[in-house]
Every structure is written in C-alpha cells, then in structure tokens.
Design a protein around this nucleic acid. Sequence first.
RNA 1: GGCCCAGUGGCAGAGUGGUUAUGCAGCGGCCUGCAAAGCCGUGUACAUCGGUUCGAUUCCGGUCUGGGCCUCCA
Length: 446
Amino acid sequence: MTSLNFYNTLSRSKEPFEPLDASHIRIYACGPTVYDRIHVGNARPVVLFDVLVRLLRHHYDRVTYVRNITDVDDKINARAAEEGVSIRALTEGTTNAFHEDCAALGSARPDVEPRATDHIDDMITMITTLIDKGHAYAAEGHVLFSVTSMADYGQLSRRSLDELIAGARVDVAPFKRDPSDFVLWKPSGEDQPGWDSPWGYGRPGWHIECSAMSAAFLGETFDIHAGGLDLIFPHHENEIAQSRCAHGHDIMAKTWMHNGYVTVDGEKMSKSLGNFTTVADVLADHKGEAIRYALLTAHYRAPLDFSINGVVEAKSALDTLYRAAEGATAAAEPDEHVLAALGDDLNTPNALARLHELARMANKGDDAAKSALKASAELLGLLCEDCSIWFKGDGGDDAAIDAAIAARQTAKANKDFAEADRIRDDLAAEGILLEDSPEGTIWRRK
RNA sequence: GGCCCAGUGGCAGAGUGGUUAUGCAGCGGCCUGCAAAGCCGUGUACAUCGGUUCGAUUCCGGUCUGGGCCUCCA
C-alpha cells in the first residue's frame, strides 16, 4: 500500500500518517460561520479536505469526517439585525447556500455536520469540567480559560505568553486574570441569542464549540484536525487548550493540517479586506468543476492566487481530460503515481500532472491508461460528469444544431465548402464548436 | 516590535545537488477540403550577492521584494 505522509503543523514537519485506530479514521475540519455566502478562499479547504477524505477512504475501510456549522456568533447577530431577518432564517438560508456551493464544487457532504446550537449542553458540560479542574474561572457573567493553568499553552502556534502580550493589539477586559485568557462563555442581553447556564443567561465563546463537537462525534482524541492557516492562532490553539485540559490527554488531534490562503494580486482574500469573490459569483459564468480544478493546481500549503483566467485555464485543461476519458470504465485502482502524489502531503499539482500524462497515453490508444485516468480523476473528485453533459450541457433543444450539422454535411458532400464553412461559423458565433472525425461530426459548447 | 512564509520559463505551478515537470498560451509539423480535436517537435526558467561543493535553481549566510500571524477570518 502506498504510504501516506502529511505535514503536521504541530511538528512543522512531514510525518508518516499513523492512525490512532486503523479500523476507524477520524477527521475534523472547521466549517463556516453561516452569515454570508462563502468566497473562493473559503472554498479552498472545502475542496482540499474533500480530496483528503477521498484519499483516506481509499486507504481505510472506515473514515468519519466531521465539519461543523457555526450558527451562533456575533457576526450572525449583526447581519440578522442589519437585514431585519431572524437569526434562524439567516443561518438556515446561508447553510443551504453553503451546501449548494459545496455540491457545485463537487465536494461530498461530511459524515456529520453538527450545528453549534445543537450542542450548547455539551459546551456547558465541558466548561464546567474546566472550572472544576482549575483551568477556567467565572468573572462578571463570563467564564474565561486560564492560559497560565496550562504549562505548554502555545505549542501549535509556537508562541510564548510573553510574545502574545508584547504583540497585543486589543484592550484587555479588566476581569481577565491574564491578558491572554480567552472567553468560554459570555453573557447575553435580552435581544441576543442565549441559553441558561450556571453562569447566567449567555452564549458560548468561539472556540468551545469545536472542542465540544469533535469530542461528541470523534472522541477525546482523533487523527486529523484541518482548517485554514488563519485558524492556527487563536482558534486551534485554544481548542487544543480546552480539549486537552478538559480531557487530560497529551493531544487533541494527532495531526493538524492547515491550508494556505487564496490571494488576489498577492494579498489574502478576506471578508475584511473586501477583495473577495463569492463562489456563487464565479458559478454564474463558470463550471464548479473548473473552480475545483483551479483550487487543486497549487499545493495546499502554498498560497494560491485566484483569477478568473485561472478558472478559464482550468476549464481548458478539464476539456482535455474529459475528451481523453470519454467512455472509459474506471479501473479498480487509481494510478499508482497519482496515489503516490496524494500520499506525499496531498501533492495535487503532481497528481494533476500525472492525469495529463495518462490522458496522453489514452489518446494514443492505451485503454489501461484511460481506465486509470477515470479512476484517478475520481479520487480527486474530477471527471464525475458524463462527458456528453460536460461538453453539451443538459436540457435545451439541440435539434436545431443537429439540423445545421446535417445541412453542412450535405454541403460538404456537394463540395460546397463555402456553405459548409458558413454554417460552421454561424454555429461558432453561438458558442457551438464542431469537430469532424471519421465517425462523423460532433459538437460541443465553448 | 515579536514570530513566520514566499520569490521558478509569456502566464499558472511542481520538483530536484549533476538528466523532460505538468497545464494554459505561442510557434513548426502530421492529420483535415479548410478547421477543430489529437499526436510529434519546439522554449539555454529557477530574485540578488557571497559561501560550501568536482558541480547549486536545489544546502548555508547576507541583501532586496512581496505576503501572513500576533484582533474577526478558510
């Protein structure tokens, strides 16, 4: 079996993947806060970790993939108030939109997709445990995690408390014992979402939901925790603190994987900078699979500069692969080079390069390569559409096109090439491209 | 201020101590009525300055440039 090696942010090095329990692989990824449609930067981890899960499923019989939905957050409250809609309506509508975007990107739903508001009890239980163990304290309606109670706090982001204080750019709440202590629970006003708790009516802090839900579905320790680079600090650092201190283990997740940013002209795509493009915006003019391909062209830890031109190029590359794989039956096993590339810290650019090598072989008549191409592409979540649908689209009345092609055939038979070319040019003007072959003329949409 | 990452051919983007990445675009050829698709061929690319080495784009150090985290963020 091809070995798997992944870069672990905890050790800052590539490590062989050794499951805690090979009979059940457990992976958690941080999901969206549902107050707005996702942008291309948000789509990157959705696609990447979908490939990771596909790879893990290839290697192991049982894989459980959990990705949460954060539906309690102050940004949600603000957006709901701004739009004059209920919080419930906002979060449910945004969640549905998220699912649509994921489907368009060819990313399968995770096995479990818990919503934070369904696990408030778990969070309260965990917070109580942290207080009982001396890792947290209540103050003025808040509950705070005490970072100084944890000897090795900061191991993921490799920051010492001194460094954090030196770089602090925020005002420190007066009730904090240490400036780096972070909120587990905070009080809610009458007009804010809240739940009754031992510390009064309130709502959870940001980090506790992932600690509570990962434990609920994957156990106190699990194999892989994934997310974007920007979650390393403070989110993941604090998840680790909460989970390890509550459960008393040396680790929370064994391997921490973080994807690099999607950039725009070199700068991080982000909501706050305003330089983002939503997935829905791109989907208006481009295929979701082309976005997916574009997101896989760079190594997941490297920055990926997004441009529409990149999506257009991805479409061209996919056209080539679809043509080469047309009519193929997927081989039982993906190509070994593709498996090796993905097993080497999810090297999707190398995997795609191999796909193109297989396509070239297939075009030269190598049916084994053709079958391998199909099977390997599916491991990446590519070439999943029917070739005819990819090129022609589904639905619509194609009779006029067929009639035009027939008329052109007649013209060609009569050696009336001027008329034949006129028909072809007219179709091209409508985005219909013709290809003559010994088996007849086929068409596709540009 | 502290910590961290990156700089590859027209563009995108892997990788390697000495030999073809791959894709998109371009050019030449085959094929074609002409195209398209496909196939074949084609590009003296590795920011810069030193060092180590028989040999460095690949290792080490300096410089320049760009970016990130330290606050919400995938």
